[in-house]
Write a protein that binds this DNA or RNA. Sequence first.
DNA 1: GAGGTTACTAAGCGCTTGCTTAGAATGGGG
DNA 2: CCCCATTCTAAGCAAGCGCTTAGTAACCTC
Lengths: 199, 199
Amino acid sequence: MPDTSDLPRADATRARLLKAAVTAFAEKGFHGTTTRDIATAAGMSPAALYVHHKSKEELLFLISKSGHERTLRLVRAAIADAPDPVAALRSVVHDFAVHHARDNTGARIVNYELAALSDEHMAEIRQIRRAIDGEIRALVERGVAAGVFDAPHPKIAATALLSLGIDIARWYRASGEWTPEDIAAGYVELALRIVGAHP
Amino acid sequence: MPDTSDLPRADATRARLLKAAVTAFAEKGFHGTTTRDIATAAGMSPAALYVHHKSKEELLFLISKSGHERTLRLVRAAIADAPDPVAALRSVVHDFAVHHARDNTGARIVNYELAALSDEHMAEIRQIRRAIDGEIRALVERGVAAGVFDAPHPKIAATALLSLGIDIARWYRASGEWTPEDIAAGYVELALRIVGAHP
DNA sequence: GAGGTTACTAAGCGCTTGCTTAGAATGGGG
DNA sequence: CCCCATTCTAAGCAAGCGCTTAGTAACCTC
């Protein structure tokens, strides 16, 4: 009974199913998507889905978790690599915006399909979300404390920054007139204004 | 055969069903809600729903349409009653924010359940959305043209203003630390910064 | 209070759902 | 080339879905 549970073959199939699920969930929502939709899009019979995943909800959880973790990593990396709060804000808003535009399908599931998660999975995801919120809030407060930001309500400013980035996933379409970089560049300037960064 | 098709009794029942549908759709999404959920919440048998409404999708459309129309009216009224672009921005951002917080259940359906609409209904809704977007964009451009706003990318600024307001419906909870007025007041100041309003 | 319209329900139809079972291909190691 | 675990499918089950039908209760008008 050799443990060959993670051979490339199985991994590739799992990945195909996940990719199909991301597309379907983003387009029609979790409840609007059937397991047959996902399996068919991945080129398999409905039953094959259950060889690789426990349930439809687990598929959502895997997508949601890796998406949240990726966002948290992105936020932490952008902030850590910056020498000061202004540079940190620039890079985190830029990267956050680019990500929410370019991977808007994944980001839509991350932000709009939370209610379909089981209680336990929801609790796990909430922790990651709190960490993301905390990073942004701490950055704004650090800038205010250092005297390089001028924001009368730092918590509201931090909420607005997060909100602007997340909502890109709702309205952005690759067929539109802006590239992810266009939006990111514009939003970086707006973010500096929001926190009252000194010129 | 007297036309008593809009007696108060029927209207009240219709309204009860609509209210139950708003709550259910906002909480679990259109596809996550069953007609039995709605009918039970309204205190009726599932069949009674179909006495007053053609289908579950029509229920969504009625909610979405009246919600969109209400938002458009709100935006137009706020702008029309103001003497200049700065005052108009203040009042429209304020009212928009208060509405998306206070009626966050209705606003969630308006903004996050569009994909469940039929093609015809979707087309009708899209027109209203375009009108709302147009009002905000025109206001920003008017302010820039009048020299009272300083925004390098007016379209991006307008998108950000709308986005900030809409996303309130996603994150706002009445149990939180802020009242709708708190958020609105904070967002008005952020909006002035975003468009570069001269002090 | 009879007549006729409106408001509602009990029951269920046909279909789809998430998921399971039983068994057929598939493919690498000895 | 055979073994046998792994990967997949055909078929289908129980439950739930949106919605309909047939008939009862409630109500207003005269």
